[in-house]
């Protein structure tokens, strides 16, 4: 069965027929070619597929494409403008929070959801928000440092997290 989707993905309006059994993850990767969002488990445990759905972090492997009709979706591809990085991306680079990088897109999206909810998060709160994003490489410490730094930077030069 195909269903019709009318959504916004990274600000762009997208209207498409998609198979009803496609997850949001497959819709993004296979229909839209937005392969930045990763697949690591398909059961909501690893967080590699995390995107923002109407501003909230969700596992896109556990959302059916037809469920998002009318919604506003952000993926990692929406963060930078050309070669101009978003402060959270820059903080990940500067803090060596990216090793193999497979967890990175999901973690960036979880970080944005966090900073949206709380611009000045405690370490505990950071851990709460990213506990659903597994990383096998970094030991999380560089990631936590990156989020703290991004929060600091954004406090000094406030800007909307997503334009």
């Amino acid at each position: 069965m195909m269903t019709f989707l009318d959504v916004r993905v990274n600000k762009t309006r997208v209207r498409r027929f998609v198979p009803a059994h496609f997850t949001l993850l497959r819709f993004l990767r296979e229909t839209e070619g937005l392969t930045g969002t990763k697949c690591g488990c398909e059961i909501g445990e690893c967080g590699a597929c995390t995107v923002l759905l109407d501003g909230k972090a969700v596992n896109s492997c556990l959302v059916l494409a037809p469920e998002v009709n009318g919604a506003d979706i952000w993926t990692v591809e929406g963060l930078a403008e050309g070669f101009d990085l978003h402060p959270i991306q820059k903080a990940f680079l500067d803090n060596d929070a990216v090793h193999c990088g497979y967890c990175t897109p999901g973690l960036l999206m979880s970080s944005i959801a966090l900073l949206n909810d709380d611009p000045d998060p405690s370490e505990e709160k950071i851990k709460t928000y990213i506990a659903g994003n597994l990383c096998r490489c970094t030991g999380y410490i560089p990631i936590i440092n990156a989020i703290k730094e991004a929060a600091r930077i954004l406090k000094n030069e406030p800007r909307p997290l997503l334009k």
Partner: peptide, 9 residues
């Protein structure tokens, strides 16, 4: 419950 992402859904 679960993770932030799971609680959101």
């Amino acid at each position: 419950i679960g993770s932030k992402q799971i609680r959101n859904r």
